[in-house]
């Protein structure tokens, strides 16, 4: 641990993220070992059977006859050079498949996050202003509902409403049948994005509004807020500028920790809305028992989550001056 102390917090954080990624790679390797069947069995199955010698030859060419530890190093080497295996179902290298699906998921997750943080913070801060008011009770009620309903079910309910009762948003996929050109192309995607991202955001609106409420109530009770009020600042400025600055800190912390859960929610939401991202891919590869793809998604999303995590952490240290000197 002494080496860590000599480095800057940013570097430490990056090194930690790297170690976590390696841990995920090792976990992935263990899961591959546990998964039924290996690539050779799949190939032999596709060929409709093969001789003993050919099987042995294939196993050797995949390194499957080596000791497990050696196989782990072979696997590590492969992952580091971007080789995540081959999807026999989609007939493509797994990495290509993942890179192709990644933008859709990142778009969905980030837009849901923005919606959730903005609406959640706003609702929470508003209800902290008058903790016993009508609006506050509404926020509490809404957050209870958002907490308790399964996200895929919320998606389905929205789907029913916007498909048959009030058809103003597309309910499936990411593009229209006839793709418009230029700016229309992006507007079309944004139009398709509305329902999935709102669905995914619901749980987090609930979550952040609760968090923001608690943290704002605490912040608004502090001395410096009383000072701000006493010197005659308008109430809005006290709350939205002075209060929110500190009230936001726990939310920023949570954002980093929740990337993983957002990804998990994306699996369900993408399945409901047929959104062509990693989550939908995960669902399809489960149906096909396509292990290389499934494990590739786990590894890939874990890496994305850890990168996002490290970035929030670094950003957080820069934003909050108290954290700049604090130890990791």
């Amino acid at each position: 641990m002494d080496i860590f102390r000599k480095m800057t917090p940013t570097l430490t954080r990056l090194l930690e993220a790297f170690l976590l990624v390696m841990a995920v790679v090792i976990l992935n390797f263990l899961l591959i070992q546990l998964a039924p069947g290996d690539p050779v069995e799949v190939i032999v199955g596709e060929m409709g059977g093969a001789s003993e010698e050919l099987i042995a030859q294939l196993r050797a060419s995949y390194g499957l006859d080596r000791p497990v530890l050696e196989q782990l190093f072979i696997y590590l080497g492969k992952v580091l050079t971007g080789d995540l295996g081959y999807s026999y179902y989609f007939n493509t290298p797994v990495l290509d498949l993942l890179l192709q699906r990644m933008p859709a998921t990142i778009l969905l997750v980030l837009s849901a996050l923005v919606v959730a943080v903005v609406l959640g913070t706003f609702a929470g801060a508003l209800s902290a202003k008058k903790p016993d008011g009508m609006g506050s009770h509404l926020v509490t009620l809404f957050s209870l509902v958002g907490y308790s309903a399964p996200v895929f079910w919320i998606g389905m309910m929205l789907l029913i409403v916007f498909a048959s009762i009030w058809p103003i948003f597309p309910v499936s996929g990411m593009y229209s049948m006839r793709r418009p050109d230029g700016i229309g192309y992006y507007l079309d995607i944004a139009h398709h994005l509305v329902l999935p991202s709102v669905t995914l955001a619901t749980i987090y609106i609930a979550y952040y509004s609760r968090l923001a409420r608690t943290s704002m109530i605490e912040v608004l009770g502090q001395d410096y807020i009383r000072t701000a009020r006493a010197k005659g600042l308008p109430e809005n400025k006290v709350i939205w500028k002075h209060g929110l600055k500190n009230g936001l800190i726990p939310i920023v912390t949570m954002i980093g920790l929740q990337f993983g859960q957002l990804f998990a929610g994306a699996v369900l939401v993408e399945t409901v809305f047929n959104w062509p991202g990693l989550g939908r891919l995960a669902y399809d590869s489960i149906l096909r028992r396509d292990y290389p793809t499934l494990l590739g998604i786990l590894l890939f999303s874990a890496v994305l989550v850890m990168i996002a995590n490290a970035l929030t952490d670094i950003a957080y240290r820069r934003i909050d001056p108290r954290m700049r000197r604090a130890k990791a």
């Binding site: 976590l20 998990a264 699996v267 999303s301």
Partner: peptide
């Protein structure tokens, strides 16, 4: 705590999906 952090940042539903599919 490093071990815990590892599990906290992993997309839990995805991991559960993988575990259930494999076993």
């Amino acid at each position: 705590m490093k071990f815990t952090e590892f599990f906290q940042v992993l997309p839990s539903l995805l991991l559960a999906m993988v575990l259930v599919t494999i076993f």
